[in-house]
Every structure is written in C-alpha cells, then in structure tokens.
Amino acid sequence: MTLTRHDVEHIARLARLQIREDQLEPFAGSLSRIIDFVEQLGSAATDQVEPMAHPLQGMVQRLREDRVEASDQRDLFQQNAPETAAGLYLVPRVIE
C-alpha cells in the first residue's frame, strides 16, 4: 500500500475534509490504487517536453478594463448563506 491511514489523515487535514475513523482504511486502499495506477506516467520520456496547462495553445489570457460593471446584489447572494446577520456572514468565534 502506497498510502497509509496516517497519510490519509494528513491529506484530509490539508483538504479540510473530515474523514470518519472507519473510512480511513478504505480510502488508504483506494487512493493507493489510484496513485499506483498513475505511476505508469513515469515510463514516458519527457525530458525535453514543456508542461501543458490548458488546451488553447498560443492564446493569451484576455484582460478587461478595471471598471465597475456588476451591481450590488448582496441580499440576493446572501439568500443562499447558512447564517447571516445585518448583511454579514456569521462564522463561529475566531478570537477569544
């Protein structure tokens, strides 16, 4: 197994994902199979190859002028928020 329970706990912490105790072992197994599977990329000769980040080669990122376009839609957007008060998003106390 490439990844251990401990590795899964560490990755889950980085990704801010709670993983139940009884799921650590199954995830270690399936993630190991995936990592073992992608290891075959090592067989490709890529010394002189440029990495490809997106498929539109030769195109440059379009920029726009920095001017206000969108209107204030705070109330509309906050209809989807789990908890708000006075137009603010509420979160648990961060500073004691």
């Binding site: 992608v38 990329l41 490709a44 890529t46 190859v49 440029e50 990495p51 490809m52 980040a53 080669q57």
Partner: peptide, 10 residues
C-alpha cells in the same frame, strides 16, 4: 509529469 505527458498526447 502529467502536464508534460499531456503535451505529448496533444
């Protein structure tokens, strides 16, 4: 590595 292999495939 995967981004480089992506170049090879393209």
């Amino acid at each position: 590595k995967a981004q480089k292999v992506r170049s090879l495939i393209a």
